[in-house]
Design a protein around this nucleic acid. Structure first.
Lengths: 229, 229
DNA sequence: AGCTGGCCTTGACTTAGGTCAAGCAGCCTC
DNA sequence: GAGGCTGCTTGACCTAAGTCAAGGCCAGCT
């Protein structure tokens, strides 16, 4: 079922926002919605890519798993975001796996239908390219952070990211399980836990999934401090 | 000056290949070509992004530099590849810096002109999206490798990548300075050097910029071996 | 030829982060 | 409320990779 909230999300999503209502209706209907319980695998890496997805609610992680079973979380998407657009162009296979990390609802949009729409409405192409560019930038950011920041700095940086525009003293809640955040940041749960303990003297307090920062400026200075100084 | 070779490259580049000659001529001319000596900085991160680039020859690295001066190489492009398409869509700033690592020639293509072309010829949009998808996948691969593979495995994997389709006994030459490769793989030159020494017993020999692999299958098995086994 | 300046390698040492495992706190079920 | 999950923290220990610094090897100059 497509609720009013769902429509609101479709209308604000970067990719579909510019589509006239009639075109949108041609692309999606209530059968396109998938409800996923926690742990449900939307697709495996290597599966044929016949659709891309728009998050209506919940959280889905994209990850790579190697033969030995170790997992690398590439990104976690929440309501309003879209993912796997790129797979439409990559020889038809998903290069990552997608799994719901909490109960979620996603809208599935067929690649073929979308391709046809794009051909007839170039402005969607721009929207898609913009979306892919953002994904690209997120990944570049992630690579930079993995290479240049310590575990403590990555954790601090992650918390800062959660503050959004807010500065000064901020209270916030962690969006995912800690072990999932740890993986996203490229470290083990134990290291994450210790990192939290170590940055406590920067005025960062975490209990359960509630966190508080005494002064974002202090944390920012810590993140920007490079290794040698 | 646009040589015949240059035209050949334009004609095979993923993005411009499908453009009729007349449209192509409207986009590029000999004034679009930039010759860069080694070390020349094409753009800094944060510069306004008014163009994207197509490599005609040589090598250009994209990297992030943090305030302390540490550098994270994100990717290195060679002849025929294009980069910075995404910047056209990211609020007009390059999120990385581009620097020639050897003397190079690049073709500069104005964002505005290309946007207009895309609007009038949707098939270019598909080509661009395909190109961006490939970049996306390269980055995902890189993140996975950084998180899941040891330094030795990353070096081995890198060498395998240079083999292309060839299997069995392969001889090859390193495409860049070792310190640059090291950075691309997310390690220090010293670590790279030691990694090479350690994988010698897999039948990998490197002297200067010449390398040889006795049996790619052995190396592949080593790369795919996960941490615990 | 001899000098100079980049790279690269190697050695000795340090350290961040991983590993393994034990305890502990919530939370759900019965 | 007892039992058992599941996820988090903490401690003791280990190891991969970074750091620092000394040599070595070219390649390009003069």
């Amino acid at each position: 079922m497509l609720t009013a909230d769902d429509w609101a999300i479709l209308r604000t999503s970067a990719i579909l926002r510019d589509l006239p209502r009639a075109d949108l209706a041609a692309l999606v209907d209530e059968r396109s919605v998938r409800s996923l319980e926690r742990g449900h695998v939307l697709f495996q890496q290597g599966d044929p890519a016949r659709a891309f997805f728009l998050m209506l609610g919940g959280q889905v992680k994209l990850s790579r798993v190697n033969p030995g079973g170790d997992e690398a979380v590439v990104h976690i998407y929440g309501a309003g975001e879209s993912f796997a657009e790129a797979a439409m162009f990559l020889g038809g296979r998903y290069p990552v796996a997608a799994e719901a990390v909490v109960a979620s609802r996603v809208m599935l949009i067929e690649s073929d239908a979308l391709r046809r729409k794009v051909a007839e409405r170039p402005e969607i192409a721009f929207a898609m390219m913009a979306s892919m560019s953002r994904h690209l930038k997120v990944l570049v950011d992630q690579i930079e952070k993995m290479k240049l920041l310590s575990a403590d700095q990555r954790v601090a940086e992650f918390l800062l990211g959660l503050c959004g525009e807010k500065t000064g003293a901020v209270a916030l809640s962690l969006p995912h399980e800690k072990s999932l955040i740890a993986n996203r940041l490229g470290m083990k749960p134990a290291t994450f836990s210790r990192a939290i303990a170590r940055i406590r003297d920067l005025g960062v307090e975490v209990t359960g999934n509630q966190a508080s920062i005494r002064d974002t400026a202090v944390v920012l200075a810590f993140v920007n401090r490079s290794a040698e100084e």
